[in-house]
Write a protein that binds this DNA or RNA. Structure first.
Lengths: 204, 204
DNA sequence: CAGAAAAGTGCGTTCACTGCAAAGTTGCAG
DNA sequence: CTGCAACTTTGCAGTGAACGCACTTTTCTG
């Protein structure tokens, strides 16, 4: 409502800008209240009052209350990076390209860094949120497997599902490690350390 | 109510036997109805009527409706196998012992094979159930990490969380593969194939 | 068989979430 | 700048999950 102009280049219409501002306002309101009272003590009604929006509208933006904390948004899987991966790039080595893909996911988060950090902080205290986050991941596993299959075909040595699962695992583990490190630094380093630790465990 | 005598050696009291019979009756009733009408079209009321039990009782057995489909029960983590693992056994090689542990989980399912198979079958059609199952896994991740830490200490080369995550991954992946194979055969073979495929992906 | 412990049940309540149709906004063409 | 089409927001009424509580029934123990 107030300073949305500094966020977006205004290349988008008023409608779209308002929509985003509202989504963010709802996420912020949810974060404020949940941080203060805890997830279960906060009703959707309260969130909507805080954000100045009707309850019905809330559910036009998020499927569940938990999603508002996590800022869940449709998965940006139609990215350029995904196409590159499907086409066999960027390096041609499966494992390296998987890492590039994970890296692209992590470097382009669906909500801003600070909001993301706050969401993780809250999730650490509310196990249900972690579960929901995982469930959201899982929902897109099909798409992920399909992406992998676009690259490998279904007759290769690896099953697309397994590769997809690895992709998910790496993304999640790196994500956690990045957060454990205080949310600083590049996701890539953490990813590399996750991969090497995984290798080391498997060959022990 | 009817043939519970053949299931249990009656070493347990009547109370315990009835409890188990009821839990199973509830799971079966849920399976029947959900298979026929779909998860969302089945109310807890309907399940309870089918099973001849009050709604309030239903929620004494399961936290949520979804849990009744999945037959979720407290995690049997206090098993002998867990203790052996924590003590550094059975072989002393981390990866082999992890596999032994996964194997012990899988060979001692919390509900009977047929019920389990039916649960998976339903879960394949109802994404929410997969999500819930994962969430349930996740809930026990802390315990799992603690178990790993009992064995490794917190100053080893591997973080207990990562090893715990691997444990979860293997269990889940093997589980799916076992089911994909029609629920036949030994879990161990599937586990071995999962591990080897994982290694192969990581070193590609 | 009596009293303790545990399990089952009925009732009332809260609250997440949905469908629908009316009212308000924004985009666009003339 | 006007009016229509497309999109959004909102109120309302309803469904159903899940929980707390007090009460009855069942099982266990001595």
């Amino acid at each position: 409502m107030q300073n949305s102009a500094i966020d977006e280049p205004a290349a988008l219409g008023l409608r779209e800008r308002k929509k985003r501002a509202r989504r963010e306002a709802l996420i912020d309101a949810t974060h404020r209240l949940v941080a203060e009272h805890g997830l279960d003590a906060v009703t959707v009604d309260a969130i909507c009052e805080e954000a100045g929006v009707s309850v019905r509208t809330f559910f036009n933006y998020f499927e569940t209350k938990d999603d508002a904390v996590l800022g869940h948004t449709p998965w940006p899987l139609e990215s350029a990076a995904a196409d590159v991966f499907a086409a066999g790039g960027p390096t041609g080595h499966l494992m390296l390209d998987l890492q590039a893909l994970v890296s692209s996911f992590l470097s382009d988060p669906p909500i801003g860094r600070e909001r993301l950090a706050r969401a993780i902080e809250l999730a650490a205290k509310e196990p249900r949120l972690v579960a929901r986050h995982l469930a959201w991941f899982e929902q897109h596993k099909g798409q992920l497997s399909a992406l992998v299959e676009r690259r490998l075909g279904q007759d290769g040595p690896h099953s697309p599902e397994m590769v997809g699962a690895v992709l998910l695992f790496l993304t999640h583990a790196t994500f956690l490690r990045w957060d454990a490190a205080g949310g600083h630094g590049d996701a890539d380093e953490h990813l590399a350390s996750v991969v090497s630790e995984l290798r080391s465990i498997l060959s022990d």
